[in-house]
Design a binder for these strands. Sequence first.
DNA 1: GATCCTCGAGTTCG
DNA 2: CTCGAGGATC
Length: 694
Amino acid sequence: MADVSAMTQYEARLRSEELRSVINYHNRLYYELDRPEIPDPVYDELMNELRAIEGRFPELITPDSPTQRTGAAPLTTFDVVEHRVPLLSLSNCFTEAELQAWHRRAAERVGSDAFQITTEPKIDGLAIALVYEKGRFVQGATRGDGFRGENVTENLRTITTIPKTLTGEVPEQFEVRGEVYMSKSGFELMNAGIGEQNIERDRQGRRPLPLYANPRNAAAGSVRQKDPSVTAGRPLAMYIYQLGWCDGPRPDSHHETLQWLAAMGFAVNPEMRLHPGLEDVHKRIDWWGQQRERLDYDIDGVVLKLDDTREWDRLGYVGREPRWATAFKFPPQQRTTRLRKIEVNVGRTGVLTPFAVLEPVVVGGATVSMATLHNEGDIRRKDIREGDTVIVQRAGEVIPQVVGPVLSLRTGEEREWSMPAECPACGTAVSREESEAAYYCPNGSCPAQQIRMIEHFVSRGAMDIEGLGERMAYTLFDAGLATDVAAIYDLTADNLMALPGIKEKGAANLIRGIEASKQRPLPNVLFALGIRHVGFETARLLAEHLGSLEALLQVDAEKLQEIGGIGPVVAASIAGWAQRPENRDIVRRLVEHGVNPTQARAVSANGGPLEGLTVVVTGRLETMSRGEAEELIRAGGGKVGNAVTKGTSFLVVGADAGSKLVKAQQLGTRVLDEEAFRRLVAGGEESVEPPSSA
DNA sequence: GATCCTCGAGTTCG
DNA sequence: CTCGAGGATC
């Protein structure tokens, strides 16, 4: 978002005009066509910027500004329903300070800060109002613009969690409000189903059906189907969160109201809580921030309401937003920012990888300033240009990713990008194999590649040299002390102390780390050499075949192919590497320096509890590290898998598990938690537990 | 020859 | 985590 506080009035006017037209455009896509082009948080951000500008320059507010409405005009294909009491929106809080400010304002009007508050997860679905007469469901409508919505009664009748008739004593006429949503698992299944239909359609030469981007869009699209039988086939559900209007007496508190509604037969979210004060609310919000991925529905925040409904009238409204409620919004997982330029990174194999240099932006709690763009083809496909406003998200909550440009914000100043003709590190002309996606720097002595090679050599899983990381690798290379990986073993304490920032102790530590690395197992050493196509797995196979480091100098491409898992390409790569004089020299010097790989422990013959099983680990484990878990699997005679496939025996799942867990559920793969996994490894689950074990 | 699976390589932030 | 590509398998 642009810095509004620094804008001149003239800039603000231009920007607000631009934002208004962009937002109106997206409103139309979203509300009328149900085909949003940008994700909700991005839309929210545009709205926030416009609000910020209008807040600072109120004279710029126009009657047609999207901030002056709560939605868009309803679709014409459904009958219009006038809401007897409008469905308004909630104010938002993004920080603790904003939340406290809301609480303080409420406390002033209540005359005390000792009031109870309810919280419930804010489900990302669509708001719906249901009208009941004499205990029967008679009408359901979307929120629309808050005053008038669409009559979608027939479609809502197909949702099983919406009661058609109520039980017990109920008011003559009343309205309830809630959220219609689609579960995450239901959404995955539905999209998978559409995917299968599309394969069939493709065979028949028909156009594919559109996939829904997320559960929210899927829910909205499903409720607004012309044919109720289509809606009936969609996995929709509804939670009621409020009593609208009511002909008759109603409870004096929000939590009692919800209990009352639940007794009538409505589905009420079981996660609703009553809190004595704001401190307790904070705890619940923090908890939700941690746990929200575990829910089977998307939430984008937590809704707070004063529990005492008699206060609601006294507190009233600010504009369109009630003072007695607010929504605490979680930091968005997607944001927009400006893509300043595209630069190129050189990998250890010479692969050139473009990455985006971004205007720093906070996404999901971390400041993102760079993101990989994979390769030139990907940039073309997504039509990403330098200067674009782009949507950034964190894949799997961690790795920043550029989703794509916001086309509607193009100014015409953006520049298309293509791979430079020369390597940015050494200036050598780049090349690309016809069939491959990546460009390479063909210069083996390119400094960037050499540094990456050293980083790889010393990294965890390879020689694992303590005290030698990315930074030190650069320092050594820069000082001419690490011309190749074998040169590391020529280092002396005196050499090191001549370098800036290294004193006696640091030098001694590093020398000790280098010394210790000489005893790494053979697979690690082979992996460390950085031979193309030889990752850790292939290095293990190779180690079993070779038996020693020296044997690498005698390899033969034909022989290598006899090893299961090694084909012609990998064999040629290994043999080619071993043939080159500079590589032979490295191996010889390593051996001379006493790099004496201990042979890999023979794969435990049999009898292990995991014999013949492939195990995949995902999520954050509580009592062991990822590496320890993998060690346990191997020790038990099992194989460590990277991805969940139908060959996977079971999945060990920790906290915040992501796509792997979803995949396992789809495939019906057995899922174990840490506890069960430990039991299995410890002695097999069938084994009889001795009575003494507690 | 097509398809499924596994592996390799590059990836960001704190 | 994601993509691309190599290897195994039918």
